[in-house]
Amino acid sequence: MTTRAQILRVLPYALLLALALVPQVYPAAQVLLTLALAKSLAVLGVIVLLQAGQVSFGHALFFAIAAYAAAFLGNSMGGGEIVLSLVLGTVCSAAVALVVGVFIVRYRHIFFGMLNLALSMIFFSFLEKFYHVTGGSDGLSVARPRVLGMALERGPFELVLFYGTLGLVIGALVLTHRFLSSPVGQMMRAIKTNEVRLEYLGVSARNVLLAGYVLSAALCGLGGVLMSTAQGIVTPEYAWWVRSGEFVFIAILGGAGSVGGAVVGTLAYEAVKTYAAAFAADIWQMILGVVLLVVILFAPNGLIGLFRSWTRRIGSAPERTGDRAGDRVGAGE
């Protein structure tokens, strides 16, 4: 085997192992990582749609729907049960995506993005306006749920949440990778390259995109529930367009071509944002903007793409032919 293949094979596992050890090695970062991992699920949702060449500037909608659904459920049950919250939140997001998706998958490109934006802004305004139900801009606090019936203290709960989130992210990565490798996933990519040809083959591009849309919404929903549980609060800001933009931003940063980009991108993004906010409180937005510009201009395939080209350089020549295909999906799979 070549060096490149070895590195590619080992690195994801090394990264996961490093993540799994964080609570023992550097406990201060544990909660931040939980939040980052939760967000990476939503980014993964955005990446699914990017395979079809479609970008949603309103996916925070599904993030917020699930988070609010879980908050209402939890608060009505005096804390509730985390497993139930996760299932209910994800199902709510997927169900809404199925209904609005029927309309939205008829649109492409800018209009696809704008319709999603409009929907998320309607929901955002609704959350802010209907103060007596949603708590307005202060949002709802989310009581600490039980875990499989057990009421945990903060410390153990946060640890469970961290490993639970990590497990769910790994599961979601595997599942999404499988989906994208499946015939439906291949057809999604055909929407990006040549949709009309797909239709000539007798395939309904709309149904294919709808499947991807519901999956991406479910991933966002899962992330939303985890985020609100980790934070103990859910606010309308969950549905704000800047957050949707952030998901797309991270997807590009990590590398929209592969599912691994979601995790790598989010970790890098949160690290930059946290340290920028801590050490350059005045200009953290500017720093993020410059990072984004540099990535797009000089590394359009994101961090994963950078890593690939690096391993390619140190790898052997025959590997080169596989690169184009490899750029599309998955690091190391």
């Binding site: 931003f249 500017m286 993020l288 903007g289 797009i296």
Partner: peptide, 8 residues
């Protein structure tokens, strides 16, 4: 996204 970065 480039214009988004400029905006930020």
């Amino acid at each position: 996204l480039v214009t988004f970065a400029v905006f930020m």
